[in-house]
């Protein structure tokens, strides 16, 4: 159904980050917001993405913000970097979704919802590391990879899942000995994202706890955040609620904290 050749071909087709994106990220990394904005403006699609992003109600700005320098200034280094990574990820998303009932707008909504709540979590955990802030951007890659690999096998997947309680991640692992999150990590490497990002997202799969206790804790928060988000009606309707397994026991230790932070009653 899915072979390693197919996975390799998918990875090969992922374009490397463009020069503009690489320089923008490097400048953001060194805190050069103004210079980063000057470079980012050269990529019109990136500029447009950033404008539409910060003017969404979820970001809560009263006035329209149109200038990239202004946007980076408002967001700060970590969130700007996160926004650029989210843009890169959205480039990878398909024009037309078929396995999941998503579109460009709902995928961006998913990215934004995850990003905003991840900021909330990191503030609660008093973590300011900008690489860790950006880690959340890689998580939706698992959905993109699942769509890319399984969309032609939609009916087969449905039949298989009507006979057995098996998620897409497990199907892929059993068929190819690599799962969706291994592929996410390969994307992170290809885009030269910080090694921590791949490690946190691997832990966030819920099936591969990290040896590093800090990364493992972040993995737990991210795993729970993912399912908190995928429990929203719009994402349930997009068939995202059960594309991977929720490991309830993995998040047990942090659940009370999470529930309090997200004001779940």
């Amino acid at each position: 159904m899915i072979t390693n050749e197919k996975i390799n071909s998918f990875i090969e087709k992922i374009p490397p980050a463009s020069k503009v994106l690489q320089v923008t990220l490097a400048l953001l990394d060194s805190g050069e917001l103004v210079k980063a904005a000057q470079i980012a403006k050269e990529d019109l699609a990136l500029s447009s993405y950033l404008k539409s992003l910060v003017n969404k109600p979820i970001y809560g700005f009263k006035n329209q913000v149109d200038d990239v320098s202004q946007i980076f200034g408002i967001l700060g280094v970590a969130k700007s970097q996160q926004a650029v990574y989210n843009y890169m990820m959205s480039l990878l998303s398909p024009k037309k979704w078929s396995l999941f009932a998503l579109n460009q707008s709902s995928f961006h909504d998913l990215q934004d919802t995850l990003a905003i709540n991840w900021q909330k979590i990191l503030a609660h955990l008093q973590i300011t590391d900008k690489e860790i802030q950006s880690a959340i951007t890689l998580l939706p890659a698992s959905i993109i990879v699942a769509e890319a690999l399984f969309h032609e096998k939609k009916e087969d997947v449905a039949l298989l899942r009507s006979a057995s309680e098996i998620d897409l991640n497990t199907i892929l692992l059993r068929l190819c000995q690599r799962d969706l999150f291994d592929i996410c990590e390969m994307i992170a490497k290809k885009w030269e994202m910080h090694a921590h990002i791949g490690a946190i997202v691997q832990a966030a799969s819920g099936s591969k706890p990290a040896e590093d206790a800090n990364i493992d804790t972040l993995g737990k928060w991210m795993h729970l955040l993912l399912f908190f988000t995928l429990s929203q009606p719009k994402f349930i309707q997009a068939q995202l609620n059960d594309f991977i397994d929720f490991h309830i026991e993995y998040v047990d230790a942090i659940y009370e904290d999470f529930a309090q932070l997200m004001e779940i009653q």
Binding site: A158, R161, S162, S164, F227, P233, N241, D242, I264
Partner: peptide, 27 residues
């Protein structure tokens, strides 16, 4: 959502958080 049927029992397995909004979308 689809059920897995075994031994004459159809089982639906929702994941995550169940409230009035999500449950209506799940099943």
């Amino acid at each position: 959502m689809r059920a897995v049927v075994k031994n004459g029992i159809g089982i639906f397995t929702p994941q995550g958080f169940l409230d009035g909004n999500s449950a209506n979308s799940l099943l």
